[in-house]
């Protein structure tokens, strides 16, 4: 499969820094398509029953930030296209709302496992949004450093190709999210 890199101006559009009218004519179609993709994403929060919230109990405030977003490069991997969304202005010593999006048309189920849910592949399912194969989960995480991977169909651990990744010590890669 081929990889796809969004133009920086299209990323600024998704960030809310510019409008569609600010884009050069040749980028407007790409911008419109990206906006349609984002608009089609289910914004319902996913509950995380297995998360240990003891860290959060120490936190003073709770902030939710949906925008602006930084849309990381969308890259193709196997049968899935993974997009990583993270707030661009995280709040230290606080909670940050992060949306994880996976475009995986052929997947029957997708979940998220990481340091924030004890690596439990059943704890945080992504919700399928529409027929385009977009899977999404919105989590509120404590500020700090988190590692994670997508779990496709309960068996395949897929790092987020749009995010930095490190060796997991087991021959695979973990994606890294620093809030």
């Amino acid at each position: 499969m081929s990889g796809h890199e969004l133009h920086p101006l299209v990323k600024q559009l998704l960030d809310g820094d510019i409008t569609l009218a600010d884009l050069p004519a040749e980028l407007r179609a790409e911008g419109e398509a990206a906006l349609r993709l984002l608009a089609g994403v289910d914004r319902t929060d996913v509950s995380m029953p297995a998360v240990t919230w003891r860290v959060m109990a120490k936190l003073e405030g709770r902030r939710r930030r949906f925008l602006p977003w930084l849309l990381a490069p969308a890259l193709a991997i196997a049968a899935a296209l993974v997009i990583w969304l993270v707030p661009r202005t995280p709040a230290p010593a606080s909670l940050v709302t992060v949306r994880f999006v996976l475009v995986a048309p052929d997947a029957k189920q997708v979940s998220l496992a990481g340091t924030f849910n004890q690596w439990d592949p059943q704890a945080t399912p992504l919700v399928r949004a529409g027929a385009a194969g977009v899977w999404t989960a919105t989590l509120t995480l404590p500020a700090g450093q988190h590692q994670y991977a997508f779990v496709v169909d309960g068996a395949r651990w897929v790092p987020d190709p749009g995010a930095p990744a490190i060796d997991d010590g087991f021959g695979r890669r973990n994606s890294v999210l620093t809030l």
């Binding site: 496992a113 340091t115 004890q118 690596w119 439990d120 592949p121 590692q147 651990w157 997991d168 010590g169 087991f170 695979r172 973990n174």
Partner: peptide, 15 residues
């Protein structure tokens, strides 16, 4: 965390 991660991923105990 590393122990839990390895077990969750089905990694052999020695590894």
């Amino acid at each position: 965390d590393k122990a839990i991660e390895g077990s969750a991923k089905g990694v052999a105990p020695e590894r």
